[in-house]
Nucleic acid binder design. Structure first.
Lengths: 221, 221
DNA sequence: ATATTGAAAATTGGATACAATCTTAGATAT
DNA sequence: ATATCTAAGATTGTATCCAATTTTCAATAT
């Protein structure tokens, strides 16, 4: 009696993965990151509800969620606005990333197995492949694969939030081939330090990886 | 025509400061921090709504907010639970505080005026006064007064969140007089470093202040 | 022309009602 | 006695409706 008699019924309201709020957050996040919804644009609950075919209630919760993630700003009784971008904000995100990810790799290395490192290496292989599409997601997956074994949920959630915040900026510039090559080399050497379980070297590598990226990209804003 | 004809009407629904959600978050946060609502306890939306005299809708948003702040854990369609406490969680919070607050003081010092430092010193005077009540809030105010001039909103919000998370643990132990004296001395020397605009010394001071507190308190959990 | 005011429209905040899901207690079988 | 199943109850998720606030825009005054 494991499978109920619902087959056709499942087709219509599909891919609403247990809670439409999560789906809304993902969709809106993507539109904000790609600039489909411009910085400063207002988000009207009823419009979004109509567009996504739900009521205002899930939209409200999704907007609240996006607010906590820093994607939109909300004042009481006023319409939510997509958060503005600025050079200072970009630098702030990367400065925070440096500290948080240094702590993440430091906490993770004692728990890293070779399987973890190989998984990260496999992701790096894909990053160096031809497909430049979805670089942001792959890059985040590479880093998170190495951080996740730390088991520190607060820290991991925070790092993930910073990655998402950074995406808004990173996706705006098409990184030149020399920058990409540098980043790839740094990923490879980070993998080496992890294999050697050299905590200090790995942490320094992560710090430099991030602060160099900050300095290289900051000029674009 | 500035004042409508509502006088008695204003007395009943008073002190709901523009949005009852904020008030709910504060009240629930306080009850969780003080342990009035124990770790692991379930939060039933309708019960809370009845208790605070509102509908479930503001309660839902408050719970969602508390979730983001790490005070409660929520699974879809299940009742929210007050987050459990653990030694690992405590250490995690303090490790994150060390990195975040080091960055905060470093970013703030170039913008610090003597007025800022004097305001912090005034708060420290109160901390060293007789009244041990409200230490958590005063301590946070002292630190935030020094960090706020950095103007980095993301970072300040994050630091404040970590302070609130730490409160659940700190408020459980009654710090001995020697620990208090040590913390006060560290606050005073931090003020000195700020007056001298010695960024490196101030950052090192903050780091030690936090990591020492971590090591001193961790044993209690 | 520009600024100010006021009222209508738009929009958000909150309450109530219903649907979907989870939880619990009791019945049944082993 | 213990475990399993089932159905009723409890609880959360979503929709719809009303109230409170903000926004807009035209009318008026300067």
């Amino acid at each position: 009696m494991k499978a109920p008699i619902r087959e056709l019924a499942d087709l219509a309201p599909l891919n609403l993965p247990r809670g439409r709020v999560a789906a809304l957050v993902q969709d809106l996040r993507a539109e904000i990151v790609t600039g489909t919804i411009a910085p400063g644009a207002t988000l009207v609950q009823e419009d979004l509800a109509a567009r996504f075919g739900v009521s205002r209630m899930p939209v409200r919760e999704a907007i609240k969620h996006l607010q906590m993630l820093g994607f939109v700003t909300v004042e009481d009784n006023k319409r939510a606005r997509v958060a503005e971008l600025s050079r200072d904000d970009f630098v702030e995100i990367y400065d925070m990333r440096e500290g948080a990810e240094a702590l993440a790799i430091r906490s993770a290395i004692p728990h890293l197995t070779n399987a973890h490192i190989e998984a990260a290496a496999a992701i790096q292989d894909r990053i160096e492949g031809v497909d430049p599409k979805g670089f942001g997601a792959l890059n985040m997956a590479f880093h998170m694969t190495l951080y996740r074994p730390s088991g520190r949920m607060r820290l991991l959630t925070h790092v993930e939030m910073l990655f998402n915040a950074a995406d808004r900026y990173v996706s705006m510039v098409s990184a030149g081939p020399e920058l990409k090559a540098k980043a790839n080399a740094e990923h490879r050497s980070l993998l080496e330090h992890c294999l050697a379980r050299d905590t200090a070297a790995a942490e320094a590598c992560v710090r430099k990886h991030i602060s160099d990226a900050r300095d290289a990209l900051a000029q674009f804003f």
